[in-house]
Simulated scan of single mutants.
Amino acid sequence: MFESRGALGVLRNQRPGTHGVGGMELFFDLVYVFTIIQLSHFLLHHHSWQGAAEAAVLFAAVWWGWNYTAWAMNWLDPQHAAVRVLLAFLMLCALGMAIAIPESFGDRAWLFVGAYVTFQIVRSTFMVLAFRGQQMGRNYAQLLSWSGIASVVWIAGAAAPEEYRLAIWALAVVVDYAGPLVGFWLPGVGTSDMSTWPLDEPHLAERSRLVFIIALGESILILGGVLLEAELTAAVVTAAVMGFCAIVILWWLYFSARHGNAAHEAPDLDQASQVARAAYAYAHAFMVAGAIVAAVAIELVVAHPLDNEGWPVALTLSAGPALFLLGNIVFVAAHTGRAPKSRIVALILLAVVLPLNALLINLLAGAVVTLILLGLLLATVTLRQSSRPEVPAH
Rank of each mutant, 00 (worst) to 15 (best):
Phe2Asn: 11
Thr18Pro: 00
Tyr32Ala: 09
Ile36Ser: 06
His45Val: 09
Val57Met: 05
Ala70Asn: 10
Trp71Met: 12
Trp71Asp: 08
Trp75Phe: 15
His80Leu: 05
His80Arg: 14
Ala82Met: 12
Arg84Asn: 03
Leu86Ser: 11
Met97Pro: 00
Met97Gly: 03
Ile101Pro: 01
Pro102Lys: 08
Glu103Met: 10
Ala109Leu: 00
Trp110Glu: 14
Ala115Phe: 00
Tyr116Ala: 11
Gln120Cys: 08
Arg123Thr: 01
Ser124Phe: 10
Met136Glu: 12
Tyr140Ala: 02
Trp146Asp: 09
Ser151Trp: 05
Val153Cys: 08
Ala170Lys: 03
Ala170Tyr: 01
Ala178Gln: 05
Gly179Arg: 01
Leu186His: 02
Ser192Gln: 15
Asp193Val: 14
Pro198Lys: 06
Leu204His: 02
Arg207Ile: 03
Leu210Asp: 06
Leu210Ile: 14
Leu210Met: 15
Phe212Glu: 04
Leu216Trp: 06
Ser219Met: 01
Leu223Asp: 07
Leu227Phe: 10
Ala230Cys: 06
Ala230Gly: 02
Glu231Ser: 13
Ala234Lys: 11
Ala234Asn: 11
Ala239Phe: 09
Met242Asn: 07
Phe244Leu: 14
Cys245Val: 15
Val248Glu: 02
Ser256Cys: 11
His259Tyr: 15
Ala262Gln: 08
Ser273Lys: 07
Ala278Val: 12
Ala285Gly: 15
Ala295Gln: 06
Ala295Tyr: 05
Val301Ile: 10
Leu306Gly: 06
Gly310Met: 02
Thr316Leu: 08
Gly320Thr: 10
Ala322Ile: 05
Leu325Phe: 03
Asn328Ile: 01
Phe331Val: 13
Val332Gln: 11
Val332Arg: 06
Arg338Glu: 12
Ser342Ile: 13
Leu359Met: 15
Asn362Gln: 08
Leu363Trp: 03
Ile372Leu: 11
Leu383Asp: 13
Arg384Ser: 15
